[in-house]
């Protein structure tokens, strides 16, 4: 690029550019072109005039979000939950990946890996049904068990605090396997000679994990975390809606931006307002990811996304 600009580079590295093409086409078609739909957030949409022909609405579409005074509470919930998910999931995924990598019995390893991966494919609707049948007051599995052993029944659905650990555990249940596979791949890629050298030096298993494995998977870790920060403003709608059963009694601790917007606009069907909420999330996510990337650049310039 330094000498001769883009054209020259295109010619010089044409094979590389050519190989980039498929990915670029997909991103342009699926991400950049639809992005023009952002304009909806500022429009009063009607079918007849379409997305670009509908009259302008200024910032009107954003108002509903702040009208009820819940904007701050749901934004805070969204961010805190995502931070909690990110921390708990990452720690558990790395732990399990390291444990699995230390296991030498092949069959056991494969079976465990598959079993942990399985929940990733279970729909949230089904998980929601599990949860309901566990926690239902009258005939849920937990209360039936408690009654059997003579303890009193618990009413989980009217207890907002209970849902914080439940949601974190459910998220772990669903995402553990997926992340573990990512980290496992990265652990396996570490040069075995390093471990052999450590063995010769008489390192314990803990020392090997601390000084070889963990630093070895650091690039993967940082990239995965940075990518998750990009979605920190987005609550996993299906999860929050289905697992809590859209329960009005626990909203204080379970309401995230996505569920709040859905409830508000369920009857109104305003595309403009939904787009406005989406834009609010995207802009904040964008700022957060820029900040995080900047912070990483200060400490570990090699591992940044861009």
């Amino acid at each position: 690029m330094k000498n001769g600009g883009l054209l020259r580079d295109l010619k010089k590295n044409r094979t590389k550019w050519f190989m980039l093409l498929p990915a670029a086409i997909v991103v342009i078609l699926m991400c950049y072109i639809p992005m023009s739909g952002i304009v909806l957030a500022f429009k009063e949409f009607n079918y007849h005039d379409g997305i670009f022909g509908s009259p302008w609405a200024g910032l009107q579409n954003f108002l509903f979000f702040f009208k009820s005074g819940k904007a701050w509470a749901v934004t805070r919930n969204t961010i805190l939950y995502n931070i909690a998910f990110l921390t708990v999931n990452t720690v558990m995924q790395i732990t399990v990946a390291i444990v699995l990598s230390e296991i030498t019995r092949k069959r056991f390893k494969k079976v465990t890996q598959s079993l942990m991966f399985l929940p990733y494919f279970i729909s949230w609707v089904v998980v929601g049904a599990f949860i309901y049948n566990l926690f239902n007051y009258e005939f849920g599995a937990i209360n039936t068990f408690l009654k059997q052993i003579g303890a009193g029944a618990v009413d989980v659905y009217s207890n907002p605090k209970a849902w914080i650990p439940i949601l974190i555990l459910v998220s772990l249940f669903k995402n553990l396997g997926y992340g573990t596979v990512m980290y496992l791949a990265s652990v396996i890629n570490i040069d075995p000679q390093l471990y052999e050298a450590a063995d010769v030096d008489g390192a314990t298993i803990w020392q090997k994990i601390r000084h070889i494995t963990l630093p070895g998977i650091r690039p993967t870790m940082i990239i995965l975390i940075l990518l998750s920060i990009g979605t920190i403003m987005k609550g996993d709608f299906q999860m929050f809606w289905q697992v809590t059963g859209n329960n009005p009694m626990t909203l204080g601790t379970t309401d995230v931006i996505d569920t709040y917007v859905t409830r508000s606009l369920m009857y109104l069907q305003e595309f403009g307002m939904t787009s406005a909420a989406g834009l609010y999330q995207s802009v904040f996510s964008f700022i957060l990811i820029l900040l995080a990337n900047y912070a990483v650049k200060k400490v570990e310039p090699d591992y940044t996304l861009f």
Partner: peptide
């Protein structure tokens, strides 16, 4: 519309 959404 904004008020209606909030009431909804």
């Amino acid at each position: 519309r904004n008020q209606v959404a909030a009431i909804g």
